[in-house]
């Protein structure tokens, strides 16, 4: 049976992810409410503004089901803002903090590379994806500055006087600081689909106790 992957569609570049998945023959669902999570094989948290997504997710009672998704061991991939939402620790949040989903044992630094004028393109060496370097677009991007012991670093770039990690996998969680959905390279989406195929049907999701906060 064909896979169905949800893309969190509260704000940001969710249509771009859907277009990539469609090219790979995967069905997609836009997730705006907790009930949209039912029956999905995998979930993508797209790029956008993590503060906006966090606030809207909290308002519609999505934070608890998303936490449950991660804890159930179901496959999830966060790009840029999505990676920030998945991180256990974040530096450089807005005043008063922001709601995080967590589960990924890393520390991310928001806007690590700077503001838009420092946004950049580069080619990454990613052994997991093969010999050919992968084009990567970083938009006001975060970086991973601390990696837990169960986390595999998949790609690095030169940061501020140090190398920083920009792509990781930890069991069911994939995270990238950049935007594969803004390029023509389907390899990251393929990698995620492989994770979903392996982990399909893992974990039960209880969507019953959902509370809205606004």
């Amino acid at each position: 049976m064909a896979l169905t992957i949800g893309v969190l569609a509260l704000q940001g570049a969710f249509i771009e992810h859907e277009a990539m998945l469609h090219r790979l023959g995967v069905r997609t669902v836009e997730v705006r409410k907790p009930e949209h999570l039912a029956g999905l094989d995998g979930l993508i948290l797209p790029g956008g503004e993590s503060t906006t997504m966090g606030l809207v997710a909290e308002c519609w009672g999505l934070v608890a089901p998303l936490k449950a998704w991660v804890q159930a061991g179901k496959p999830i991939w966060g790009t840029c803002a999505g990676m920030i939402l998945l991180a256990n620790r974040a530096i450089g949040q807005k005043a008063g903090g922001q709601p995080l989903i967590g589960g990924l044992d890393v520390t991310v630094s928001r806007n690590y590379f700077g503001r838009q004028n420092e946004s950049f393109e580069t080619f990454l060496r990613v052994p997991r994806l093969g010999e050919e370097p992968v084009r990567a677009v970083f938009i006001r991007a975060p970086a991973i500055v601390e990696v837990g012991s169960d986390v595999e670093a998949l790609a690095r770039v030169a940061g501020r006087g140090e190398e920083v990690v920009v792509a990781v996998q930890q069991a069911n969680i994939l995270a990238t600081a950049f935007h594969p959905e803004l390029t023509d390279d389907l390899r990251w989406h393929q990698l995620f689909i492989e994770m979903v195929e392996v982990q399909k049907g893992r974990g039960d999701l209880n969507l019953e106790r959902v509370e809205r906060t606004c």
């Binding site: 569609a9 509260l10 704000q11 940001g12 570049a13 969710f14 249509i15 771009e16 790029g47 956008g48 503004e49 906006t52 840029c80 803002a81 838009q116 946004s119 950049f120 393109e121 677009v137 970083f138 938009i139 006001r140 935007h179 803004l182």
Partner: peptide
């Protein structure tokens, strides 16, 4: 680059 410029606008979508 143009991709980087357009990219930020793409991240603002739905907002």
């Amino acid at each position: 680059t143009f991709a980087v410029k357009v990219g930020l606008a793409q991240m603002l979508k739905g907002g």
